[in-house]
Amino acid sequence: MASSEPAYDPKRTESWLICTACGTQFPTANRLELKTCFICDDPRQFTLPTGQAFTNLRDIRAVAKNVWTPFESDDRFASIHTEPKIGIGQRAILINTPDGNVLWDCLTLIDDDTVNKIKDLGGLKAIVISHPHYYSTHVEWARAFNCPVYLAAEDKQWTTQSSLHQVFVEDIELDLQIDGKSSGVKAIKLGGHFPGSFVALYKEHLFIADTLVTTPSGLGSWDTDAIGAARVRPAGLNSYSFMWSIPNMIPLAPDELQRMWSILKKYDFSSTHGAFLKMDILKTVPEMKRRVLESMQIQIKYMGYGNHAFLKETVP
């Protein structure tokens, strides 16, 4: 890394302002200079009923901690989230590959405990962030671990800081390289929620963040009835919704869903892992792909596009 990139120093930026609604850090401590968050002024996001407010890492570090939750099904993955909730409250996911660790998405809180724990696990080789609502303090994370952070080129306008660690991805698929060879982690640009919204794929695990929004009926279980008898999941239930704005409930248009599917259908995945804890669906490859397609078709149908050509699409 060029010498013009500042080294990680937890004290240097601890007073910089962080939006309390989205958790994004701005490179100033001057509340007269920064009065609003342009990310939360975008129609996809919102300010709190109490109005625009800012905090900083010094105050967050005094009251919050990052909590680790290993995946029950696979010890190669661990969720990290912050308690009490900061900003949106998303999780990051540590992906352990044979060539090193990759962090999927990012958190606002970065502190000594988190840095030391990750370094004890081998550090980070790369960070991949799904979309601008989770940009948070990604420059601090990249500096702490001296690693690249991959962001979609289409969404560069939403960054609040510039760094030599940032890599803006132009292609639809990024085969993440570690020390000159493939890590097996793929970042796939589906768009939708933001023009550059990513999902990530590793060993049939699809990390979806908010690009696909996991629904309660997707997580629900219909395997047995109240007395333990086997049953079949009822028809017509979705597992995901596809939103331009999640909090403001603005759905994506049918043609956009069709475009997203034209990319995603090329990949095999047997599980999805959403933006928050306990948003994990584990099935088989055919069922997972069927659930995604059917969820898209359900959304299109109930938006009033009953004759849309995409409703005839099937999973081979």
Rank of each mutant, 00 (worst) to 15 (best):
L174E: 03
L190Q: 00
V115C: 11
A153C: 07
K117M: 15
K119L: 13
H193F: 06
L206M: 12
V169E: 04
Q177S: 08
E173I: 12
H138I: 14
D179N: 14
D155C: 15
G192W: 01
V149E: 07
V139G: 15
K189D: 04
G180Q: 05
D111T: 14
D155M: 15
F168S: 03
V167I: 14
A200H: 11
D120G: 15
Q157A: 15
D210P: 00
K125P: 00
L151M: 11
E154H: 06
L151Q: 07
S182A: 15
D112N: 11
D155S: 14
K119W: 07
A200Q: 08
Y135W: 11
Q177L: 08
G122P: 01
K119N: 15
L121R: 09
V149A: 15
L124M: 07
A144Q: 06
T137H: 03
F207M: 02
K117C: 08
Q166N: 15
D120K: 14
L174N: 02
Y135P: 09
Y135L: 12
L201N: 02
I127R: 02
A142C: 08
S183L: 03
D111E: 11
R143Q: 12
A142L: 10
G184W: 00
A152R: 05
I110D: 00
G123P: 00
A187Y: 09
I118V: 13
W104Q: 05
L201G: 02
F198L: 09
K181P: 02
A209W: 04
P132H: 07
F207H: 03
I110Y: 00
L121D: 10
H165N: 11
L121C: 08
W141H: 04
P132S: 07
E170P: 05
L121G: 08
L124F: 07
T160C: 11
L206A: 13
T108C: 01
P132W: 06
